[in-house]
């Protein structure tokens, strides 16, 4: 005991503060992967490559913020990817086929995302359906609607004016990444500094107890599902702006990756634990893994194995650091 105490007293205060933070494990894992990549690959730290990673992270990051917020509530929405894809396709149709001005088309598509998220929330709260099961169904509907609308063919001719939102940079930082950071700041403010955030954690921990405390559980659920739909739509629109076409495949990879990112980032699937910031750290780990796999020229047949091993190592590192924290009494 005295040895542990002396170890604690020897540790610099900043390090002690870092270790007390529940995000310390995933943050250190992120920094470690970043540092190792920088040492091993001479290309990793180039400005262009940093921009590539940040831009790639932005889109899945937005959906990760949405999914992690739902997971804190104890919910899951498997249709977020297809909401993003559908809203992207609809925005393309509104701009190209209906000839609407781009800002109006984008706003309407965001509203569609809100509506689809609201619909998911409504079905979960009113009918008392399990969100995981329900959204398997709605993902099928939204994904099917993409194929019905596009026949599988991308919508081209997206106005060049909006492509800045996906391809542009401000002071060398990709615009979609800046948008994601702004959304993350808002999500952190809401979850940490407002009653709504406290209610979300309370509901995630124990919905029945939250109800007894007078928290309007269904209203909060409905609100978070709705906002999650809108964030996914935003990701879809930004991807349309990035590609310059509304691809029917947008959102296909936004189903499992955000859940994995959130879990890596310490968000519990059972609810009540974690933070959108941790989830973004998790998404950052995944984004770096995807990047270094290409930089190192890993065979496509080994990519799944390599990325899986790195994810397992990152989670193990996080778990070990938590155990160390507990043992240390910090």
């Amino acid at each position: 005991m005295s040895t542990e105490h002396s170890a604690q007293t020897r540790r610099p205060p900043a390090l002690t503060l870092l270790m007390r933070n529940p995000l310390a494990g995933v943050f250190v894992a992120l920094v470690a992967i970043f540092a190792i990549s920088a040492v091993i690959s001479p290309y990793f730290l180039s400005g262009y490559n940093m921009s590539v990673i940040a831009r790639g992270l932005a889109f899945v990051g937005l959906v990760t913020i949405a999914q992690s917020s739902l997971m804190i509530l104890g919910e899951l929405d498997l249709s977020l990817g297809t909401i993003g894809g559908l809203c992207g396709v609809v925005s393309g149709m509104l701009m190209v086929q209906a000839g609407l001005p781009a800002p109006m088309a984008l706003i309407l598509a965001l509203c569609l995302g809100l509506a689809l998220g609201f619909l998911n929330g409504l079905l979960v709260t009113v009918l008392g359906l399990h969100s995981l099961v329900l959204t398997i169904g709605t993902a099928g509907i939204y994904g099917g609607a993409i194929l019905v609308l596009t026949k599988g063919v991308a919508i081209t001719g997206i106005p060049a004016g909006i492509q800045f939102l996906g391809r542009g940079d401000v002071l060398g930082v990709p615009v979609p990444f800046l948008i994601m950071l702004a959304v993350l700041a808002i999500a952190l403010f809401l979850s940490l500094k407002t009653p709504m955030g406290r209610y979300m954690y309370a509901i995630g921990n124990n919905p029945a107890a939250a109800r007894m405390l007078g928290i309007r559980v269904d209203r909060i659920r409905l609100l978070v599902f709705t906002l999650a739909g809108m964030l996914s739509a935003l990701a879809g629109l930004l991807m349309v702006a990035r590609l310059g076409t509304a691809q029917p495949s947008i959102g296909q990879t936004w189903v499992l990756a955000p859940i994995a990112a959130a879990v890596i980032g310490g968000v519990a699937t059972t609810g009540g634990v974690g933070s959108p910031l941790g989830a973004i750290f998790g998404a950052g780990i995944i984004a770096i893994i995807e990047n270094i796999i290409v930089l190192f020229g890993v065979s496509p047949y080994w990519q799944g194995v390599v990325s899986g091993v790195i994810v397992v190592l990152a989670i193990s590192f996080d778990a070990l650091s938590r155990r160390y924290l507990r043992r240390d009494g910090a």
Binding site: S41, Y43, F44, S46, Y48, N49, V52, R55, G56, F59, A154, M239, R242, L243, Q247, S249, I250, Q252, T253, E290, N291, V294, L295, P300, Q303, G304
Partner: peptide
Amino acid sequence: PQTADVVQQVQIVESAIST
């Protein structure tokens, strides 16, 4: 790309340009 997804393909090409 692990799936026939243009987003993944773009990401691979952009990462590869870094090298």
